[in-house]
Design a protein around this nucleic acid. Sequence first.
DNA 1: TATTGTTATACTCTATAACTATA
DNA 2: TATAGTTATAGAGTATAACAATA
Lengths: 142, 142
Amino acid sequence: MDSDLTWSERRGELIHLSFMLTGRLRALMDQRAAELDLSPMQARALWVMQDPTPMGELAEKLHCDASNVTGIVDRLEDQGLMERVIDPDDRRRRNLVVTEEGRARSVSLRDRLHEGNPVLALTDDEVEVMLTLLGRMLEAPD
Amino acid sequence: MDSDLTWSERRGELIHLSFMLTGRLRALMDQRAAELDLSPMQARALWVMQDPTPMGELAEKLHCDASNVTGIVDRLEDQGLMERVIDPDDRRRRNLVVTEEGRARSVSLRDRLHEGNPVLALTDDEVEVMLTLLGRMLEAPD
DNA sequence: TATTGTTATACTCTATAACTATA
DNA sequence: TATAGTTATAGAGTATAACAATA
């Protein structure tokens, strides 16, 4: 069916454009993070964190191996932005807690991510539509 | 104005969700790339390339420093996926050309990026809307 | 025995600065 | 002098495998 081919092509185009947007947003995030002395992964850790979060759970949220999280959290701890707290119920587990300073840094990052964000090109109505579509794309399990 | 505050919050939510989608798409890209023996940056280079592209232009498209491109292209050349061709009009310039094998690898990657892509959660009509909105977000200069 | 997290390793990515060769 | 690209360097991210502590 011809129209089917067209739909397929449209989806291909959408996938391409979504990766182009991803590249832009990544560049924006990394640039703003660097202004705040945060490496890309440190920034993403602060971005996705909701304390308390065990190391392994943070690894999942960052889409990387658990062994990497050790170093990333080490450097965040060095900056006093995060703390490891041993879970009293399971002493193997380290619950990550964002410090007050870490939360302040996270808020600064969030504010800076508005400036120059491609999302600002949308009208208010389009923002609503986009929120709905993003919600549908993200509701599927990871 | 109250409604203004709401719009601002909506945009904040949209920015947050767009970065969550970015994280998902990055993980998907890196995973599929690895299956094809491509590092994340090698995959992105193939993804954004449109030959012939000088080194510096590829650096811009990858949002990274020009010095990094040397190594990335070295490794792509090692795999026979790309070639440096000295520009006859300006012998300082190296034009990058994707080889036939490189193009095949690129097509494989594109095909694999459809499987498990969050974009598949959208209906055909929603895809059309999303294409329009993405186009508006990306039309502004980088 | 299984799980949580760390360490060791080798490779890739990263920006900065100094360099080569062309223009 | 200016530009295109490379090299050197130091730091950060990456997966794999082996390990420690705890369950």
